[in-house]
Amino acid sequence: MFSSARRRFLVHASLIGAGAVLSRSGLAATATTTVRIGYQKSSTLITVLKAQGKLETALAPLGVDVSWSEFASGLPLTEALNAEAIDFSADVADTVPIFAQAAHARFVYVAQEAPSPGAQAIVVKRAGALHSSADLRGKDIAVTKAAGSHYLLLAALAKAGVPPDATRIHYLTPADGRAAFERGSVDAWVTWDPYVASADQQADVRILANGNGLASYQRYYLASTRFAEARPDVVAAIYAQLREAGEWVRASPQGAARLLAPVWGLDAATIERANARRSYAVRQVEAANFDEQQKIADTFLAAHLLPAAVDTSRAQRWDFNAKRAVAIGA
């Protein structure tokens, strides 16, 4: 059923994801009857839809079921998309699709959330000696590789005139990054909400910098090209549900927090604080709102984290009117 390369990928993804759950039923289903959705903890709108069962209700008239696979972060999620282990990726940070593009993955940008620069941050110990990004020189820093927070770190270091190799960067999942930060193994932790919100209210923690003026942090929803072309009706239905979910979270912050609290294992007040920093304004991908992607790609190339230059204008977005993939600038 799967090639040996595909099997190797699935093993690799499970190791990288540190907890990714690929359901047996999701992998076995075909794209014509089931849409396999990958998501992560910070995929708020998809989590809302999953908890409410609204996506299943919306897709039932189309003869489509939903299977769910949870991943620890965006990079293994898009690797699964590239391997066609999933059909649709819930929101990932703006950095993640660039790595997918560098790997020549066949995917399309389906939607974009408007900027949320305050929803990711560099957190440090309040009593520590770090008071500006320049103070990160020579320090140990935990960050998730290829996440939006990774770009925030690189942007903050660049603005402060600190080369990345003048620091000691440790690539850790959010859970491992937090553990390392709390036990003092690293001096700073760079992460995103709801992880920031779960840490920044602690008495011994403060925010060194967030994305304001550094990284706009636009999150993207992706689909495999094959699936989008086969089921444009499903892609359109998911997009409509995401827009509605975003409107509901903004209009009902307390209700959204109460819904997410048992799912995320966080208290409602923490979730409401995290959600207040996200725009949740879902929109179609247009060239006018895409400029920062090239800057991000160039930054990662300069840091020797991409194998080759990436021209983000050559990526594809989903044209809902034409029901096909087109170049970003088209």
Rank of each mutant, 00 (worst) to 15 (best):
M1E: 10
A5N: 06
L15C: 09
G17L: 01
L22Y: 14
G26W: 04
A28G: 08
A28E: 13
R36E: 03
R36F: 02
G38M: 00
Y39M: 05
P61M: 11
P61V: 08
P61Y: 10
V64A: 06
S67I: 05
G74P: 01
A80F: 04
A80V: 03
D87C: 08
D87W: 08
D91M: 07
D94K: 02
A100Y: 01
Q101L: 07
Q101F: 01
Q101I: 01
A102W: 01
A102N: 05
A103G: 02
V123C: 05
V124S: 04
K125T: 12
G128H: 08
L136F: 09
I141S: 00
I141E: 00
K145M: 06
A146M: 07
A147G: 02
A155R: 10
A156S: 14
A160D: 06
G161V: 10
D165P: 01
D165F: 07
D165I: 10
T167G: 11
D176N: 13
R183Y: 12
V186T: 11
A188I: 01
V190G: 03
W192N: 04
A197D: 03
S198W: 00
Q201T: 10
R206K: 09
N212A: 15
Q218A: 14
S224G: 12
V234S: 03
A236G: 14
I238C: 09
A240P: 06
L242P: 00
G246S: 10
A251Y: 12
S252H: 15
A257N: 08
L259I: 11
A261I: 05
W264Y: 08
R273N: 13
R278C: 07
Y280G: 01
Q284H: 14
I296G: 02
L301I: 02
A302V: 00
L306H: 07
P307K: 12
D311V: 12
R314L: 13
W318K: 05
F320L: 07
K323D: 09
A327Q: 14
I328D: 04
